[in-house]
Design a protein around this nucleic acid. Structure first.
Length: 775
DNA sequence: CAGTGAGCGAGCTTCCGCTTGACTT
């Protein structure tokens, strides 16, 4: 083999191989091939922070293949991305594959086009060890922060918690926003608008002033009853609107959320599919750049479809902090395809990308904005009517901005001095708005603004803070709120009370008690790490390392020198109360103190102290309760459960609330209590019925068992029939799936045995680190 | 969420950034 080219992504490898011809074999590293060992700290502090790298098990096979390919190649071309991580990947490849300097070349290209790649091949350079060292500094710092901070949380708050340079700041943003919302009290005001008529044509006008009270609003409406309305002046001015740049990961996530209702994860999965199918360019990017070739194609498409007056080639420059711009912006690979095959999501996301890309190279929209002020004869206030006429649609032809005034209607022709007829004037009560909770997409935007996280980590970070129980996607619908509406029609003012929904948390990111407590703790004791500018500041240091002006170990030594003593200090602090603990008062029955805090299994109430003679009693908070708001009464009420409802056939019937919600316990079995009943009030009769229903269901559950296979049952489960096996004396059952197309009721003992053996022999898939890992 | 409802206590948990798997029970 003559040439081996190694890139990071297999989809990229496939494309490049086509450009390069038969003398080149192109393989992929699938990202990093080596990292710090997963479990241990893996940094030798005493040996100048020497990292202990390993090839993860799942990469061993790949590395073997790369190594043998490299051995038989005359020249190896390391073509990983041109950024810090890419340079490190090249270096790790060089080391691990034991490459030789004389036949190794490092090349880079920002766009996957034949000329760009040919040019790269003609301009190889050595591996930039300074850039590699900047990556090592980044990697080592993140490990130090994460692996020293997290254990502090285990000791002081709860096991298995996590903290890190990125996730902890993300949680902080959400917690602080929540505190702003809690501290906010909405102020009512009245907003007035009018439906008017000019020579038989309707127009809408608003009053720029707001009224603070209903009395003031009423007074104004009443004064309007006798008033004349006259156009005072009409102001027409041209307005230019320009398109937005093409998508990056972050803006695509935001726009797909707003316009298509996609979660950040959905967007990334869909984009990944489009990328693998060769329909769009790489989807994890912070670059606004379009290749010359793409610009040319887009220009041609615009010209041929819409005419050259719609074309305006534009180059965009990124403003985002820490952008590394190793790729292009996200764009269609072939702009002439305005749609693609695929499922619904793929088609919609593609179309969005196509529109935004096209628009980014199109002419400004020319708009004529008309503004008319309307005098009220009885007072100084003036109504204002606004209208827009699009003189030339430009980029609006393919992409409409979501927010903003686009779409305002036209006004009928108006002239100064013209009299208008008021049809109806209404004053509607509104309320000042608290700052909005973050959605996944707006959190990503904020993180990008702060330079925290990278395109490849936005979606995973959002998953992490949710799987750690720091943050949940809100489910509360909000509450109805009454508001007043006053209306002036036919000379009479009438008032109505209306209701609207407010405070909905649906789909918004809401901090949990654990999230709040962890955030309070970290911001108090580690303010430097939690500072919104921490990442930006160390990025400057990493840049210096990359430029060769600073040794990476020196930088890490400095950081560790100030960070680690703080860890020791906080660990040794003896705290009288647990972090986040709130003392509610005393239990009137026992006279012992009552407090709420984060316990091993989450937020809980505790009566008494561990040092007391009698052991403390515990009760978990309900899902809708919070450490910060629960009262003593509510807390004590939690100890009313589990409650003995009575006896049935000589056995106790007990109601309680567990990890999976309200339940009835009877004769060693548990039955969930449905939503329309409560454990506090459920009657013995109701409970008996629930138990009977469950027993009946249980009876239907068993499809088959076999005398010769003890402990094995064929059962009817939530997802259909399955085989359950409980080894003798074991606590847990092991389940096996029944192959598709097999009738469960006709299974024989031999069939079952065979299914089980087959699945036992099948290789287990590597454990996924997901939310399921929790107990 | 293929069963379930803490507390014993040994041993475990944890970071960020590159990449895609093989699954839909």
């Amino acid at each position: 083999m003559k040439n081996l080219v190694i890139v990071e992504s297999p989809a990229k490898a496939k494309t490049i191989e086509k450009f390069l011809g038969p003398d080149f074999k192109v393989m992929s590293s699938y990202g990093h091939i080596r990292d710090l060992r997963k479990k241990d700290f893996s940094i030798d502090i005493d040996a100048d922070f020497t990292p202990d790298y390993e090839i993860p098990a799942e990469k061993k096979d790949l590395v073997r293949q790369l190594k043998s390919a490299a051995k038989s190649a005359e020249t190896v071309w390391l073509a990983s991305d041109e950024d810090r991580e890419g340079e490190a990947i090249a270096w790790h490849l060089y080391e691990v594959l034991e490459l030789k300097p004389e036949n190794t070349r490092r090349i880079v290209f920002h766009e996957i086009t034949k000329p760009a790649i040919m040019k790269a091949i003609e301009n190889p350079r050595p591996i930039d060890i300074n850039l590699v060292n900047a990556q090592q500094a980044r990697r080592v710092l993140d490990r130090i922060v994460g692996f020293e901070l997290s254990p502090v949380l285990w000791r002081k708050i709860r096991p298995s918690l996590s903290a890190g340079r990125v996730q902890s700041v993300a949680v902080r943003l959400i917690c602080e926003r929540e505190k702003e919302i809690e501290a906010f009290s909405p102020e009512p005001y009245f907003r007035v608008n009018a439906m008017m008529e000019a020579d038989g044509r309707a127009l809408k006008a608003d009053l720029p002033e707001r009224f603070r009270t209903e009395e003031e609003a009423l007074g104004f409406l009443e004064s309007c009853a006798q008033a004349d309305f006259t156009v005072a002046d009409v102001n027409v001015k041209p307005l230019k609107r320009s398109p937005q740049p093409p998508y990056t990961t972050s803006t695509l996530q935001q726009d797909a959320h707003r316009r298509l209702g996609f979660s950040v994860n959905q967007t990334m999965m869909t984009a990944q599919k489009l990328y693998e199918d060769g329909k769009i360019t790489y989807m994890r990017t912070d670059s606004l750049n379009l290749s010359e070739l793409a610009m040319k194609d887009i220009a041609e498409t615009i010209t041929s479809r819409m005419g050259k007056e719609y074309l305006k080639p534009r180059h965009y420059h990124t403003r985002s902090k820490g952008a590394q711009e190793a790729h292009e912006a996200i764009r269609p690979t072939y702009i002439s395809n305005s749609t693609v095959d695929g499922d619904d999501r793929e088609r919609r996301l593609y179309e969005l990308i196509w529109r935004r890309t096209m628009a980014s190279q199109m002419a400004d929209a020319q708009i004529e904005k008309t503004q008319a002020d309307i005098e009220v004869s009885t007072g100084a206030e003036r109504f204002r009517a606004e209208g827009e006429v699009v003189k030339f649609d430009g980029f609006l032809r393919v992409y409409r901005p979501e927010d903003g005034e686009a779409g305002q209607s036209m006004l009928p022709p108006l002239a100064a001095g013209q009299r208008l007829e008021a049809q109806e004037i209404t004053a509607v009560q509104r309320f000042t708005l608290a700052p909005p909770r973050f959605t996944e997409a707006t959190l990503v935007k904020k993180m990008e603004d702060l330079g925290i996280g990278r395109p490849s980590t936005y979606a995973p970070t959002i998953s992490t803070i949710q799987s750690r129980d720091y943050v949940v996607r809100g489910e509360k619908e909000g509450e109805p709120r009454l508001y007043r509406m006053l209306s002036l029609k036919d000379g009479k003012v009438s008032g109505t009370a209306l209701s609207e929904n407010t405070g909905s948390e649906k789909g918004k990111l809401v901090p949990t008690d654990v999230g709040m407590v962890v955030n309070e703790f970290l911001t108090r004791y580690f303010p430097d790490i939690l500072d919104f500018n921490f990442t930006a500041r160390i990025e400057e240091k990493f840049d210096e390392i990359a430029e060769g002006g600073l040794g990476w170990q020196k930088e890490i030594t400095d950081f560790y020198g100030s960070f680690h003593p703080e860890i020791d200090r906080i660990n040794s602090l003896r705290m009288e109360h647990k972090v986040g603990e709130r003392v509610l008062g005393t239990d009137p029955k026992s006279g012992r103190p009552v407090s709420v805090k984060i316990c091993r299994f989450g937020p809980a109430v505790q009566i008494g102290e561990a040092t007391d003679e009698e052991k403390p009693r515990f009760a978990s908070l309900h899902k809708d309760q919070s450490i910060s708001t629960i009262t003593l009464e509510e807390a004590l009420k939690l100890f009313d459960l589990p409650r003995k409802i009575g006896q049935h056939e000589g056995k106790d019937m007990v109601a309680g609330v567990g990890r999976f919600g309200p339940y009835i316990r009877y004769d060693g079995m548990f039955v969930s209590i449905p939503k329309d009943m409560a454990p506090e009030t459920i009657s013995l009769d109701e409970a008996v019925k629930l138990v009977a229903d469950k027993r009946e269901k249980e009876a239907q559950k068993l499809i088959k068992e076999f005398a010769e296979l003890p402990g094995i049952q064929v059962l009817n489960g939530r997802f259909g029939p399955y085989i359950a096996f409980k080894p003798d004396g074991a606590k847990k059952t092991v389940n096996y799936k029944i192959p598709k197309g097999t009738e469960a009721s006709s299974l024989t003992a031999a069939d079952v045995k065979e299914i089980m053996e087959k699945q036992d022999a099948a290789p287990k898939k590597p454990a996924r680190r997901a939310a399921k890992a929790k107990k």
